[in-house]
């Protein structure tokens, strides 16, 4: 019977069954199917291989494939769990799961920590914080004097580094976020609750039937 399916759907490398991904994330099966529609669009935007390359990620975020950005690089690297230079479908869904409104807050806090731990030492260090502030200023064309930058970084660091050992660990980070919950506001994407409306997955649904 295998030869009957001349229109068998082509699955990209890294494709995982929606039921498996739904079991591991806050998404329902139909939401994962809708995410696959979005994923196909993003992953074929420049290189038609069904994998999200960094240029495609930058294009989706900034409408510009060449716009480098420290924070977008960090997000890409965290999504690219296998570290093979592309975001596969399973990686895309699991990582976006953290941004779901129903995802545990602890996961959002942990993700933000890893994002800001630029050199992956297990701590956010003062130099990293300063580097991120400078990157933000550069990105937004804001100009601040060196003194003001130092003051902002120093004050924040003193507030967060309660143990005073010159680095922010995960415990200190959790405590700091609990005092400033707005810090993880961008770890929640309300869009993810309406993803099935934005990307209906009729095609995927019929493909599932076909393969049964």
């Amino acid at each position: 019977m295998g030869c009957a399916s001349s229109k068998r759907s082509k699955r990209t490398p890294g494709y995982e069954e929606p039921t498996v991904l739904a079991a591991e994330t806050p998404f329902t099966v139909s939401e994962v199917e809708a995410l696959y529609e979005l994923y196909k669009k993003l992953s074929n935007a420049i290189i038609a291989d069904g994998l999200i390359h960094k240029e495609e990620f930058q294009l989706a975020l900034f409408r510009n494939r060449n716009r480098r950005n420290l924070f977008a690089d960090r997000i890409f690297d965290l999504f690219d769990v296998k570290r093979n230079g592309v975001i596969e479908f399973g990686e895309f869904v699991r990582s976006l799961g953290v941004f779901h409104p129903n995802a545990p807050v602890a996961d959002k806090i942990a993700f933000a920590f890893r994002l800001y731990d630029l050199r992956q030492t297990g701590f956010i260090e003062r130099e990293e914080l300063k580097e991120m502030v400078l990157a933000l200023l550069h990105e937004s064309d804001l100009v601040l004097s060196e003194d003001v930058v130092e003051t902002i970084v120093d004050k924040t660091f003193t507030d967060a580094d309660t143990k005073g050992d010159g680095k922010i660990d995960t415990e200190e980070w959790k405590e700091f976020v609990s005092k400033h919950p707005s810090l993880i506001k961008n770890m929640t994407l309300p869009y993810l609750k309406d993803i099935t409306l934005a990307f209906p997955s009729f095609v995927v649904a019929s493909e599932v039937e076909e393969s049964d």
Partner: peptide
């Protein structure tokens, strides 16, 4: 205007690179 009392993490969390909502724009 960025006051010197601004929380540095608050500032960096406004980065466009961290705003994934643009992934969903058609």
């Amino acid at each position: 205007v960025v006051p010197a009392t601004m929380n540095a993490f608050e500032l960096i969390s406004t980065s466009q690179g961290l705003n994934l909502s643009s992934l969903f724009e058609k």
